[in-house]
Simulated assay, not measured.
Amino acid sequence: MTRYLVYDVFAEAPFEGNQLAVIPAADTLPEAALQQVAREFNFSETTFVYPPEDPAHSARVRIFTPTMEVPFAGHPTIGTAVALVEAGLGPEMVLELGIGPLPAHAAQGAARFTTAAPLEVLAYPEPALVARALGLPGDRIVTTRNPPVMASVGLPFTLTELADRAALSACRPDTAAFEAGRDAYPGALDFAQYAYVRDGAAVHARMFAPLDQIPEDPATGSAAAALAAYLAQDERPLRLSLRQGEDMGRPSLIGLEADGRSVTVSGGARRIMEGRLLL
């Protein structure tokens, strides 16, 4: 039997934030079981922790959505770092991810990591297609300051500024439009959408990836990191407090700092349950 832990990540209280399953001793599982286990939990991500390949590092971490393995994601990195420090590692650590070694710090139920992965601007999707995907009238999409952009610091998301908080709440994803976006932009994580509203240092956001069996994600650190890196091209240093998940009843809080060279993502993680996989 293999132990598992479940955390609420980027949460300020139990039953908030984004759920994460952590398998601390994944080397006890057969390779073929990893995707099946992630699908069984059906959280946006599950992490599988292995001994590091480099003995100077803390752990090797593999991240699975319900449908695929991904090289990097934010809330799995935060939650896994907290799980590792609770197991006696850290507080400083280096995690081996699909994007390479990533420095992290965890203590007292919170963690942060810093990524220096370069910002990739992959495309500027048509605002009309983005509006269809979000189920919004076209005039709710901001096209002047920061038009919709597909960007990545490890995982690609379409970052779209909306006119106001009411527009963010009004989003109703249209799966057919996501399919059209996936076909138009292959390799772009099924046209995952990160819609946001900004007021100075305060940001509210929502993330939709229905083609990856994630109708809505309560907290998306990798998308938040891409947004910070993108905005930091014109604003340095940049510090943001980002709230996500409020419209789906799982409020989350993500801290962001960017200087044009790297992005630091921070937040809390609370262990909410644990058990055994009967495999």
Rank of each mutant, 00 (worst) to 15 (best):
T175Y: 05
P30S: 11
Q36D: 11
N42F: 12
M150T: 02
T80E: 04
P125F: 00
G200K: 09
P24S: 12
A56T: 14
E126M: 03
I254Q: 01
L238K: 00
A184D: 10
P91I: 09
P137Y: 06
A195R: 03
E40R: 13
A202F: 08
S44M: 03
P118W: 07
G187C: 13
Q35K: 10
G200M: 07
A73T: 05
G138Q: 12
F43G: 01
E45Y: 04
R182S: 13
A166F: 05
P52D: 07
P24C: 12
H57C: 12
T65F: 02
R165Q: 13
V121M: 09
A223V: 07
G88N: 12
G267C: 10
V22L: 06
D212S: 14
L155M: 15
F157R: 02
F15I: 04
L242S: 05
S152V: 06
P210I: 10
V70C: 06
S169P: 00
V197N: 02
G275D: 07
R172Y: 04
M273H: 09
S266A: 15
G268M: 05
P127G: 04
L231W: 00
A32I: 08
L253I: 07
A224N: 10
A229R: 10
Y4S: 02
M207E: 06
F191M: 11
Q233R: 11
D190W: 02
A177M: 11
G88I: 12
P52Y: 08
D139K: 08
G267D: 04
P237Q: 12
R62T: 06
A116D: 14
F48I: 04
G17M: 05
E92D: 15
T65D: 03
V197P: 03
S44L: 03
L238R: 03
L155I: 13
M273W: 06
N18F: 04
V121S: 02
A87F: 08
L211W: 09
R140Q: 13
E12L: 14
E120R: 15
